[in-house]
């Protein structure tokens, strides 16, 4: 049985059109209701143990889809089966089988120490004490949160809180983990640590992961399949390798140099020069990052290096440009 099965899922929100005219006149104005499509006819299936990135720019419909999959939003049309439940009909039953992290919202109790939040969750999910203790110890080790347990959630940094949030969502041993923008607002180090912890744990336990993000770095570290959504429609469903090959092969590298007029040349690298600075655009198929860095270190006197993933917007532009790249993806559905 699939971990998630979605067929023709759509969601439109009914909103009143904005009032116009003078303030007094607005009071008596009848405003027509308009349908605002957020998700339109998306279908996909995720097998148990798969780690899937559900990506798209802001307002693409990622969170709306995730909320439908958790049962807190009812779709306008379509069907879904998540961990054996129809989410919007069996929300509480489903809650025992899945873990959810909303990156911008906390499921922990703000004023309580992390340990007390975990204890409350133990009572909510009714986990026996020995099983809870064993699970907790494993999660403490996986997410390196031992030192945080006795601190109130309000005193944690965002990165520390998110690590605790993910551990909390896994306490009841769900077979499916849904993560909504888990790395949003985190600095580079915290992002890298979280991705490593999450990737390792999901691989070790075989947990199915569906992760929404607009950070291409999350996708590459954690996931092995990518579903791209834009303006509510499914744009691409492909293995990570094919996305990496077709759309994530370009990287930007900024080199800050000691030389005022630096020069650099290498096959597969486009160079833009400024005083004390070079901006390189790499085709990683021709010029892998490590080779470019090695060449730069020999040719230049470097003060700093910044490597940037391509912004998701550029990836989506490239997908549109290639017509969704159905031929390039191994089993793309567009």
């Amino acid at each position: 049985m699939a971990a998630i099965e979605v067929e023709g899922l759509s969601k439109s929100f009914r909103v009143r059109s904005p009032a116009a005219g003078r303030p007094m006149a607005r009071l008596f104005q009848s405003r027509p209701v308009i349908e605002l499509p957020a998700v339109q006819d998306i279908s996909f299936t995720i097998a148990p143990g798969e780690r899937v990135a559900f990506i798209g720019p802001n307002g693409a419909g990622k969170s709306t889809t995730l909320k439908m999959l958790t049962g807190i939003l009812r779709p306008s049309a379509g069907e879904a089966n998540v961990a054996g439940c129809v989410p919007w009909r069996q929300r509480r039953q489903l809650a025992r089988r899945i873990g959810i992290v909303f990156g911008q919202r906390s499921q922990l109790w703000y004023t309580l120490p992390v340990r007390s939040s975990f204890e409350l969750l133990r009572r909510i999910y009714d986990i026996g004490r020995p099983a809870h203790q064993a699970r907790l110890e494993r999660l403490i080790a996986s997410f390196d949160i031992g030192a945080l347990l006795d601190r109130p959630v309000s005193e944690l940094s965002l990165g520390q809180r998110i690590r605790c949030e993910i551990a909390a969502s896994l306490l009841h041993g769900p077979s499916l983990l849904l993560l909504d923008e888990p790395t949003i607002g985190l600095d580079v180090t915290a992002k890298a640590a979280l991705r490593d912890h999450l990737g390792e744990l999901s691989r070790a336990e075989g947990t199915t992961v569906l992760l929404t993000s607009h950070d291409t770095g999350d996708i590459e570290t954690i996931c092995d399949r990518v579903i791209v959504i834009d303006r509510g429609r499914l744009l691409l469903d492909a293995p990570l390798e094919s996305l990496r090959r077709d759309f994530l092969q370009r990287r930007s590298m900024i080199l800050v140099t000691a030389e005022e007029h630096p020069r650099f040349a290498m096959a597969g690298v486009a160079v833009a020069s400024e005083p004390y600075r070079l901006t390189l655009s790499l085709d990683t198929a021709l010029a892998p990052v490590e080779k470019v860095v090695a060449a730069a270190l020999t040719q230049l006197s470097l003060r700093d290096i910044v490597i940037e993933n391509p912004p998701l917007e550029d990836v989506i532009k490239a997908i549109y440009r290639d017509g969704g790249a159905p031929g390039k993806a191994d089993h793309a559905q567009v």
């Binding site: 909320k67 958790t70 049962g71 807190i72 929300r91 025992r96 919202r105 999910y125």
Partner: peptide, 12 residues
């Protein structure tokens, strides 16, 4: 604040 979303996905 939308925090209720986190509470609605619990079995309680």
């Amino acid at each position: 604040s939308g925090e209720i979303a986190a509470a609605l996905v619990r079995p309680l």
